[in-house]
Simulated scan of single mutants.
Amino acid sequence: MVSDEAAGSSDEDGSGGEADVQDCSRINEDRELKDKLLRKYSGYISTLKHAFSKQKKKGKLPKEARQILLNWWNIHNKWPYPTEADKVALAESTGLDQKQINNWFINQRKRHWKPSENMQFSVVDSLYGPFFMND
């Protein structure tokens, strides 16, 4: 035989049932709200999805602009850090924003420029002084 305590009381079953009913009610309300919003704004959502799918990546800079930047790069390949005046002039001649000019030079230096060893030592010496001192 099983006692009433081992089987559980009827009070415990009732409290769990109320919570389940509230959860179901909340889920149904959420679903109704979602359906209502989708009906009302589905046209806008599909338009936004279409617009975002077109805007993935703008792509490369115009060929003429890249050529102007590369010409500057080739002339100044030992120290490819344009001054602010250079950046303004390059922006005017290429039709690009200064931010685009800056980014192009940052990427170009990372990908294609390695300072010579002499230059690295001279930069370090100018920052910290000569490594070896004469006695």
Rank of each mutant, 00 (worst) to 15 (best):
V2F: 11
S3M: 05
D4T: 13
E5W: 06
A7Y: 14
A7T: 09
G8T: 07
G8K: 12
S9E: 10
D13W: 15
G14L: 09
D20N: 12
V21E: 15
V21T: 11
Q22I: 12
D23T: 08
R26M: 14
R26W: 09
N28S: 14
E29N: 14
R31H: 04
R31A: 15
E32Q: 14
L33N: 04
L33H: 12
K36Q: 14
K36V: 08
K36L: 15
L38F: 13
L38N: 09
Y41N: 11
G43P: 01
G43F: 04
T47S: 11
L48G: 11
K49I: 07
K49F: 04
H50E: 10
H50T: 09
F52P: 00
S53T: 10
G59N: 04
G59R: 01
G59V: 03
K60R: 02
K60E: 00
P62E: 08
P62S: 10
K63L: 14
K63H: 08
I68P: 00
I68H: 04
L69D: 02
L70H: 02
W73D: 01
W73K: 00
N74P: 00
N74F: 01
N74V: 01
I75L: 11
N77H: 12
K78Y: 10
P80I: 02
P80T: 01
P80A: 09
T83W: 01
D86M: 02
K87I: 10
E92N: 14
L96H: 03
Q98M: 13
K99G: 07
I101A: 03
N102S: 08
Q108A: 11
K110Y: 02
R111P: 07
W113S: 00
S116R: 13
E117A: 09
N118E: 08
F121A: 06
D125W: 01
S126T: 01
S126G: 02
L127W: 07
Y128M: 10
N134E: 00
D135N: 05
